[in-house]
Design a protein around this nucleic acid. Structure first.
Length: 282
DNA sequence: TTTCAGGCCTCCA
DNA sequence: TGGAGGCCTGAA
């Protein structure tokens, strides 16, 4: 296990922010994370939250080598980005956003796998988080590769498009996907036969990637924006779901000042989302 | 029992 | 072209 003290990084907040359904707190302060076929255990060793806005830090133990951390996990957690600089863009007069940033200051936008993110956010539509997690667990167990951790426990990696394309809609429905099974089946087929190219989407700018994603069966504006933000790291993407829509109507009736945030409004969206869901003192 | 959850598609006017 | 209705399922 390697130990790291990290600024603007709180795994509990990241797990609760709902951007990654395979990051789970399995016991207080203990997390496990599956990303594609990689498995990581993480131990929260404490830290400080009562620092000036934007500078919380915590210490974590990671069950990987220094090399794996630097090559895979550090980019995955977006650790080279300065989130303090984003927080400082929020003006003093915007008390709501200042509170949201202070409350969820350890959130980062993960850099997740494109295919995995497409499928998980197809599942997320009109759905709740416990059920989304169950669906993904079933999908991985039925179609993913087994990954054994250091204690010999088996976990399952995320199934690739070919694997899901070979499953029938009824078989996918058995993963509790409901009507979303046909979206996943069709999208997997399109990726598998090359009519939708993941690699080209990776190289598109935000508007082009969003439009390309929305051409997939079952992917609308909200899901496309989530994929752009959480997989392609287009941090200007600003997904609007029912929670965010309510906030915009209540706090920003003139519209959210996207232009103030220098192409990183999506990060602010995550602070707002987390604040709305978990802040009880409003 | 009903509503709603991190929407999207299809149909019809 | 825009709006209404249907869709899986389970927690509250």
């Amino acid at each position: 296990m390697i130990v790291k003290t990290l600024a603007d990084f709180n795994l509990k907040q990241i797990a609760a922010s709902g951007q990654c359904f395979r990051l789970e707190e399995t016991a207080p302060g203990r997390f496990h994370l599956l990303a594609s076929d990689q498995y990581l255990e993480i131990l929260d060793m404490g830290g400080r939250e009562d620092t000036p806005v934007g500078e919380p830090y915590r210490t974590y133990g990671f069950s990987c080598t220094e090399q794996d951390f630097e090559e895979f996990w550090s980019p995955y957690f977006d650790l080279s980005a300065d989130y303090g600089a984003v927080k400082r863009l929020v003006p003093e007069r915007d008390r709501y956003l200042r509170n949201a940033v202070s409350f969820g200051g350890g959130i980062r936008i993960l850099r997740q796998d494109l295919w995995e993110t497409m499928v998980t956010f197809l599942i997320s539509q009109q759905n709740n988080i416990p059920r989304i997690r169950r669906c993904i667990r079933l999908l991985c167990k039925n179609y993913g590769n087994a990954v054994t951790d250091s204690s010999g426990q088996i976990h399952y990696g995320f199934p690739g498009p070919d694997k899901l394309a070979s499953a029938s809609e009824d078989e996918l429905r058995n993963c509790n996907l409901g009507y979303r099974a046909k979206y996943i089946q069709k999208t997997a087929q399109d990726v598998s036969d090359g009519s939708f190219c993941l690699e080209s989407v990776r190289h598109m700018d935000y508007p082009a990637a969003r439009e390309a994603l929305m051409s997939c069966y079952g992917i609308g504006a909200k899901v496309a924006d989530c994929i752009c933000l959480f997989a392609l790291h287009h941090i200007e993407a600003f997904p609007i779901d029912t929670h965010i829509r309510q906030v915009l109507e209540r706090e920003y009736p003139q519209g959210f000042p996207v232009s103030c945030y220098n192409g990183c409004a999506g990060i602010l969206q995550q602070y707002i989302f987390y604040y709305e869901l978990f802040h009880s003192g409003k």
